[in-house]
Write a protein that binds this DNA or RNA. Sequence first.
RNA 1: GCUGCUGUAGCUCAGUGGUAGAGCACUCCCUUGGUAAGGGAGAGGUCGACAGUUCAAUCCUGUCCAGCAGCACCA
Length: 652
Amino acid sequence: MSLDTSRISLTFPDGNSRDYAAGVTPAEVAADISKSLAKKAISAKVDGQHWDLQWPIDADAKIAINTMADEAPALELIRHDLAHVMARAVQELWPDVKVTIGPVIKDGWYYDFDREEPFTPEDLGAIEKKMKEIINLRDPVRTEVWDRDRAIAYYKANGENYKVELVEAIPADQKIRMYWHGDWQDLCRGPHLQHTGQLPADAFKLMSVAGAYWRGDSNRPMLQRIYGVAFRNRDDLKAHLTMLEEAAKRDHRKLGREMDLFHMQEEAPGQVFWHPNGWTIYTTLQDYMRRKQRADGYVEVNTPQVVNRKLWEASGHWDNYGENMFIVEVEEDHAREKTVNALKPMNCPCHVQIFNVGTKSYRDLPLRMAEFGSCNRYEPSGALHGIMRVRGFTQDDAHIFCTADQIEAESAKFIEFLAGIYADLGFDKWRVKLSTRPEKRVGSDESWDKMEAALANACDMAGRPYEIFEGEGAFYAPKLEFVLTDAIGRDWQCGTLQLDPNLPERLDADYVGADGERHRPFMLHRAVLGSFERFIGMMIENFAGRLPMWLAPRQAVVASIVSDADDYVHEVVAALKAAGVRAEADIRNEKINYKVREHSLGKVPAILAVGMKEVEERTVSLRRLGENRTETVTLDQVVADLAAEGTPPDLR
RNA sequence: GCUGCUGUAGCUCAGUGGUAGAGCACUCCCUUGGUAAGGGAGAGGUCGACAGUUCAAUCCUGUCCAGCAGCACCA
């Protein structure tokens, strides 16, 4: 601690410290250490904060000088400064374009522009070229702190209305930093590189252009957003582009076609035509879920698809979600008015109807009511995506009717149930999000305290850490969401556990308590997979089509090498089928190479080739998907092995 | 829903103001081949739908439908 306020002490990562005049910049500190460091430096870490090399340091601090070797700050600065460089390139090419915002995102950045003409792919090439020119200029970066009025006046004079709005939105206690490289100016809090020449001209790429609302608000103007990706060097960029190609190869829409799982067509947008192969996956998964649910104390029900609007009015869906419901109107000659129904968008109101039949006792609770409920929602056209976001789908839905006291134990029980299923399905990376009370809500703070605590405690009981998402809960109650991470690192929110004191109230559900009085039950909405359509789509991409044997629609193909082996092929198929293996014969007049290629592309886990040698020895030549070696196995052995591997995990 | 792009054979894609082509898949023939495409022949299309411009539209214009990317949405 230096006593003289004009002197400060900076401590380096190695523990040594040096004194400097207050207001020293990291650039000066770096220069003080070595000439080469001064040149290589890109930014600093000052008391844990990412610090521009030009920002003065006014008090004692820990300091570390960053170079391109420090991955996180390097990528941050590269992507950030490329956003500025891109904005400058655009304005140099088209001076009338207005700039807005350009943040760093995963793998890169974007920048939103206001321009009448749409950007074309050719424009992106021209912008990239201009960006490289700007990088080569090695223009130093300069920042200044301005006062608000000056910044507003400046942007007004330049006609940059979006920037005016941004400046006005900056909280009064925050500095307004103005940024330049060359003569080009932007509003930016930084930090930044020393000069544009520090940017890797060969390690970025402009990817796409798309519309985006100003400030994310669909009532405001639509801007044009250009996306870019950037890395520290060319190899990293190439690796990223290769990864994108790999992800494209996993696309469930492409694999769905190649594996003959399903198709979709214009006449039924957002709805799936399941083919035999795809439906096998679906029913296999559903059978598994049904067994798991039964074992966990659920009863299964089934409820109507077409339900009169009266029920949706009572549940509140008609008012709140009417626009997203499929309406079915029926004209009846004898009726005074036409009957208006809606296809059910969710199952809960129907489940309450079942609950409401007869008088329920506290002894009936908790009542776990499950349905593989077919739902239809009129999703906005732009939201549809393969079988992942559809208008007709089936949830692995259930509602647990319980008392307030039972919420915690039921929630914990559900988390364990879900954990077992994710493990069976091959997902070991998943996390829990706890969404808490939003600003607009109903119910007292005490009741929110209790509900949030119940969910948090349930996570603790199940031994699962959770992240809190403040204000993300529904207006009536908090919820848990279960997010799993797939094989290529993408997150999918699948499971959910939503508390609900609201719907039992609206639909007047009650039970008789031990005290002989009527009480309102709580409802827990819960799902593990979410929807079968989405979950299967996600699994196809996760496994790149190579589903675990028990879920693979075609588990084995027995292929003849010569037609004299055909009879034996049929015998092998029959033996496999008898053992419960989904097996097919391929005795087409084609070479074995051709058959192997076709079934490999079809992602069949086991190809059993049979020639005269196998016929004589009563063996098969087994080739597993993804391997290019083969193995000779006796018929009995291969039947036993494939049957065992094809057994669902809960039946092993 | 919004912005942009796209829509030609089952799939992937060429192409033209004078009503169309390739490869693969499909059917048939030859071939019986030992682990990722053997050879030949044939069949297959209201060029997304509807209007308009034109002597003539798959091609140009408009509207609609669907798909793709992003945004917004996701009870």
